[in-house]
Computed example of a mutant assay.
Amino acid sequence: MPILEVEDLSISFQQYTVGLKQKNHQVISSLNISLFAGEILAVVGASGSGKSLLAHAILGILPSNAIMSGTMKYAGEELTLKRQISLRGKEIALVPQSVNYLDPLMRVGKQVRTSVNDGDAVLAQRKVFERYHLKPDVENMYPFQLSGGMARRTLLSTAMVSGAKVIIADEPTPGLDPVVIDEALNNFREFADNGCAVMLITHDIESALKIADKIAVFYAGTTVEVAPVDNFTGDGELLRHPYSKALWRALPQNDFIPIPGSQPHPSSLPPGCLFAPRCEKATPKCGLAQPEMRKLRDGMVRCIHAT
Rank of each mutant, 00 (worst) to 15 (best):
E5W: 07
E5G: 01
Q14A: 13
T17L: 09
K21E: 12
N24R: 15
H25Q: 09
V27P: 02
I28F: 05
S30L: 09
I33W: 00
S34D: 13
S34Q: 15
A37R: 14
A37L: 12
E39D: 12
L41G: 07
K51Q: 08
I67Y: 07
T71G: 04
A75N: 14
G76V: 08
E77A: 09
E78T: 11
T80V: 05
L87N: 01
G89F: 01
E91P: 01
A93M: 12
R107N: 12
R113Q: 15
L123V: 05
F129V: 01
E130I: 01
D137P: 01
A151R: 14
T158M: 15
K165R: 12
K165N: 14
I167N: 06
P172A: 05
T173L: 10
T173S: 07
D177Y: 01
D177A: 06
D182Y: 03
D182V: 00
N187F: 06
A192T: 10
K210L: 12
I211G: 04
A220G: 07
V226S: 03
P242T: 00
Y243H: 07
R249I: 03
A250I: 05
P258F: 13
P271H: 04
P271R: 11
G272D: 11
P277F: 09
R278L: 06
R278I: 10
Q290L: 15
P291K: 08
R294I: 08
L296P: 00
D298V: 05
V301M: 08
C303W: 07
